[in-house]
Design a protein around this nucleic acid. Sequence first.
RNA 1: GGGCCGGUAGCUCAGUGGAAGAGCACCUGACUUUUAAUCAGAGGGUCGUGGGUUCGAUCCCCACCCGGCUCACCA
Length: 495
Amino acid sequence: MELNELQQQRLQKLERLQAAGQEGFPTTSQRTHTIGAALADFDALADAATPLTLAGRIIGARRVLGKLAFAHINDGTGELQLWLSRGDLGDLLFDRFADELDTFDIVEVQGTLRRTKRGEASIFVQDLRLLAKALNPPPEKWEGLRDVEERLRQRYLDLIVNADRREVFRKRALAISSMRGYLDERGFVEVETPILQPIYGGAAARPFITHHHQLDQQLYLRIATELYLKRLIVGGFPGVYEIGKNFRNEGVDRSHNTEFTMMECYLAYADYNDMMQLTEAMFRHIALAVTGSTAVTYQGQVIDFAPTWPRIGLIESIAEQTGINVLAHPDLDDLWSRITAANLHRTGKIERKATWAKQVDELFSTFVEPLLIQPTFVIDYPVELSPLAKRHPTRPGLTERFEAFVAGMELGNAFSELNDPLDQEQRFLEQGRAYSAGDDEAHQMDTDYINALMYAMPPTGGLGVGIDRLVMVLTDQPTIREVILFPHLRSREGH
RNA sequence: GGGCCGGUAGCUCAGUGGAAGAGCACCUGACUUUUAAUCAGAGGGUCGUGGGUUCGAUCCCCACCCGGCUCACCA
């Protein structure tokens, strides 16, 4: 390992300490309180002059003023100023602090709590030792670490330096635990289903492909959990859910990451209307848990998760924005003629797609989705777009499906689950034809899933929620990579 | 994948076809209540990588690598 000048200076300090009989990385800390606990009980501990042992990372500049010195330490629960004087510490320890310790070192201090003349809560240090030497120097004192690439590649440093970053991930954890709590309370059983799958399904996406050597079997990283979870509804669970990673071999942008976290839940003897109510109630519950309010500000816009959300028909919303009733143009050639007649292709945003369903999806994504800022249910999707959803009983060609949109992003997808095995088989066959026609995201035939449906699945409502996007909205983050700890980046040589 | 922009000291950033800069950090010295401490001084660079043009390239040209924004695709 080649060390730069700053790293060598720090290494030399470590070696000097070790030469003086100090451990550079002792096995354990003897701390008596977290900083958070010390601050919470500050006045009592200070009045009683209780001796405390605290530990933490030296953050920010050390200020050495001749025979006095100041610094701050942070242990993840709080931050506290160290007050060190040559008189109290003695020459050996004071010089050790001044000469051998650096910003980012992790130290342990003993002392009593007091306020300085200017009123800042501090620990007046009587003893100190190194717990772990930082060989890397900190970034700029005020600008911090701004370079996006470095922040993502060295997320640990980003988290050290940018304290609000840790807050985002605390809120992410809170969002997930409150979601889990909501579902647990309502009798959903949390399950784990395969990530490595012999047949991928449950969504329209290209998969990652891998191989099992011993079994000599091609496997896919899951793109969704759907088909396994519904097998469990067949198996008799009243409701199931899974929170976990999905993997889609597709582009990365501000609202897409290669691997992302989804919650899927299925409720027996329910339909998509029930799932809309569940979605509203659950999002309200989570928003309250994370932010204390149902109204959150996202990128300057107030978004209110309070029920009841508007429900608009997919077909009607496209017609409203484009003047085109896609159901009146039920094949691709016909629909494309209508689009060109309306000159929509001249906007530069619309091009001819491989299938009618994808063309409809593009019209919606382009002309309707960006307008859906407040939580909105878009309902009743075409059968061709929804191979796993039950047909609408009164609207031919449509299914009982909705997607939940917030801030112009799809946050949820749900339907009354198709439980007719014969219809499901036909849908898979249709998907196979779409694949042949050039739709490389079409579903594969899953005969075992059909077999499961042939034992009868009760009427079931299902819902999927994109956790990362939900966290983006709840924490006001502009991109998905700011709510994922280690988003995917190309590897860089020598790093 | 396309378009536009970027990569210079540990970090944040200037800059120029003719000797590589600033601030912060770091190092040395002074300083017993600092809060971006202050004062004085010193050190630190394969200017993303590889070619090319040129007497001379960090700068101009080409290719490549990594990233940002954006469009396309997807949730």
